[in-house]
């Protein structure tokens, strides 16, 4: 059971959260300008690295904040990277 560092609530058990996937997936500013290939890449593909990944987590059973952490997918080591948004 991971302990996820919520910037607002502190360390809480993973089952209060939902993992929101890779933070590098950023919605294109103007999807209409994307080629079919680029759009498919955005929709479906992941870097899915073995190692550190920056990802979104959502504290759904808590403060409902979406925040980013760096998490190592091999060791599960977590580094908080966000201060509380203003």
């Amino acid at each position: 059971m991971l302990e996820i560092p919520c910037p607002w609530c502190g360390l809480r058990n993973e089952n209060e959260f939902i993992c929101g996937g890779e933070a590098q997936r950023k919605r294109p500013a103007d999807p209409d300008r994307e080629t079919d290939e680029a759009w498919a890449d955005y929709l479906y593909n992941n870097a899915n690295p073995k190692g550190v990944v920056t990802e979104w987590w959502w504290h759904v059973s808590g403060c409902t904040l979406w925040f980013k952490i760096d998490r190592n997918t091999l060791t599960h080591e977590i580094t908080p990277i966000e201060e509380l948004p203003e």
């Binding site: 993973e14 939902i18 993992c19 073995k50 990802e55 998490r71 997918t73 091999l74």
Partner: peptide, 13 residues
Amino acid sequence: DPYPSYAQRGTFP
């Protein structure tokens, strides 16, 4: 398990 991992171990819940 509800998140990506290469750790070959799972979460007890």
